[in-house]
Design a protein around this nucleic acid. Structure first.
Lengths: 110, 110
DNA sequence: CATAGATATTTCATGACGCGAAATATCACG
DNA sequence: CGTGATATTTCGCGTCATGAAATATCTATG
């Protein structure tokens, strides 16, 4: 598990990425990140929802309540147009940032 | 310039890296990071010093005051043994973390 | 049926941290 | 003398991940 500080900068990016192709509900996003990262990245569930709320407030994602018969109620989020822009922006930012850090700490000069 | 959140996770790592080979004072560290990153990473000077204090409190670095004739007083920091361990640890953590993020956001499958 | 555990969401207080602004002081240059 | 770079300190602010607790439904086990 990584330090909270490391995770802070990539939380939104990760969540946006999970919503890139299809809409998902909060709990699902958390599990997906956990599974796909081989448990190397885990979000506290409270953190996840708070980020989700923030991103919806920012207009990056839009939630839709679904209450199927014999199912718990779930809020499915999808990317908005703005969210897609932010995703691509944050992706580029992350890659550039990672590149700079690697240069500075003397890693990628192999 | 990157988001503060992205930077949070790498601030200590960057500073430790700058001190890896030789001792430096705060202002110098800031300038060095700015120059080496091509101004892509800039720390607020207040941030820099607060991180420095924290790291000294943690025993990762040790400051030494130097007051030369015809020079402003400066506090030169060097890595402690613990600091060196933390540096190597944080370096490994960073690389692993970056790898996981790249996997998750679908970047490195090129 | 009772119980436990996974699923699913909400709320709130807390602490850590980067940031911005302001203050202080020395030195170099014109 | 004034300006700008060097060099450090202090403090309040806002943001953000965290942790704990509460609520509720579904599934599996005994």
């Amino acid at each position: 598990m990584f330090s909270p500080e490391l995770k802070k900068g990539s939380m939104e990016l990760l969540i946006l990425s999970m919503l890139d192709q299809e809409s998902r509900h909060g709990y699902e996003i958390g599990k997906l990140i956990e599974i796909r990262s081989g448990s190397r990245i885990e979000f506290r569930i409270s953190t996840l929802y708070s980020v989700l709320y923030r991103m919806e407030k920012n207009g990056w994602i839009k939630g839709r309540w679904v209450e199927k018969e014999g199912q718990r109620r779930r809020c499915y989020y999808r990317l908005t147009a703005a969210g897609k822009r932010v995703l691509s922006l944050q992706k580029r930012e992350w890659q550039e940032f990672a590149g700079v850090i690697n240069e500075l700490i003397g890693t990628s000069h192999a």
